[in-house]
Design a protein around this nucleic acid. Structure first.
Lengths: 219, 219
DNA sequence: CGAATCGTTGATGAGCTTCAAAACTCGTGG
DNA sequence: CCACGAGTTTTGAAGCTCATCAACGATTCG
């Protein structure tokens, strides 16, 4: 898995150096780890659990992505433009984290070129993802965006034993991830159930007609 | 200017090495330099002129950003995920370009750590921009997005002697940049003229009440 | 001087948000 | 164990923003 920078961190010889600076801790469910606009202090690694990375405008919210096991967040603060976090991060469940101070992380990057290169590739991938989502938000109807969201969730979190997407996400959060309102998402999912594209199992969602769902995301 | 990687390229000792691989050329107005979905061949630097970087969905188009003097494009193809360009690039005016093959550029990055680090920071900044725009597209009304677009254009291209934003952009392209339709942008600009936020001078746009325009982009 | 592209404007309605209000879940404490 | 309230899900209705369509004037360009 290319995006697992954790692995890099764990394997490198400078691991002992990190030990002196890193700080492990656990975030409870719904705990706010980063708040948009706060000064940047460092970067976070996720050992286990799940964190939503989101942005606000007024009282509306957009979930940019989810950071689960092996992912990092807070890394956008590293650029040259700003000294404040451009995003908020909130734990969706109990989450084990590792915090690394920004200055130490940056100086490490300057020494460990392999890590820096990996991080660069990681950024390149994220940028591509981000711009694709930009296009989706601007050009796609809600139904297609929802299809993209569901396929993305399935790819990231996999399926449980019943074939459902293995994540417990409130409809509120699903809506914020798809970039639509609560009610619209609700109705659109109902539509999808009518059309046998998905099946509901309690609150979980099972993709039954992946091909048709993918078709929604094309043209 | 942090984003001017060109400067880096020009100043480094490996410049002679580049000379053997790079290829300078000129793109005419409206010439398509990269087409979405084509296999990645390399990265482009802009010496002069202006290029729109855009994505399509069906017959709709979204302009992701503009690459003028000192900017690069085609760099998103470098990530690990894909071997095809995720964007199209089209010259908006006569543009002087420099092309560098991907394999050579990547191997250069592995040797020149300073450049790699700069590029990483560049990516970090772009990612932040991109996610902000994502939020804008998802949550803002058209009028606010248009305000953001105009302020962005002013920041990137500056003003001419009459105080207008120094770029000749068709309303079509302005609409594609703001993520709205032609007609809506037209009407919204009229609205802004009524409210004395902007003034039209021929086809160019002059921001007269920057503070009020910025206010539109908040909350 | 056509032909094509771009700018301007009005009418229409689909898609989506917003508001409002039940029905349902679930944890808390009496 | 049940009552309570807070949060979430479900549903209906109203309306607004914005895209779409259509038509015409203006401008560019070979």
């Amino acid at each position: 898995m290319q995006r697992c920078l954790m692995c890099q961190l764990a394997l490198k010889e400078w691991k002992p150096a990190i030990a002196a600076h890193k700080k492990n801790f656990v975030a409870k469910k719904n705990e706010v780890i980063i708040c948009e606009g706060e000064p940047v202090t460092g970067i976070y690694f996720v050992y286990s659990g799940n964190v939503k990375v989101h942005k606000k405008w007024g009282d509306k919210e957009l979930i940019v992505r989810f950071a689960d096991k092996g992912k990092i967040f807070g890394h956008r603060g590293l650029g040259t433009t700003s000294a404040v976090y451009p995003i908020s991060a909130t734990a969706l469940e109990e989450t084990e984290l590792c915090f690394i101070p920004a200055d130490f992380f940056v100086s490490t990057l300057k020494v460990n070129h392999e890590l820096a290169f990996s991080l660069m590739m990681f950024y390149a991938d994220e940028l591509q993802e981000s711009e694709k989502k930009m296009r989706n938000l601007a050009l796609m109807p809600v139904k297609s965006r929802l299809a993209v969201a569901l396929l993305h969730l399935k790819a990231q979190f996999g399926m449980d034993t019943t074939g459902c997407i293995d994540i417990d996400l409130s409809r509120q959060d699903l809506a914020a991830f798809a970039g639509a309102t609560y009610e619209t998402v609700f109705r659109t999912i109902n539509e999808m159930v009518q059309e046998n594209l998905v099946v509901l199992s309690g609150k979980r969602i099972c993709i039954s007609e992946e091909t048709s769902l993918i078709a929604l995301t094309r043209e």
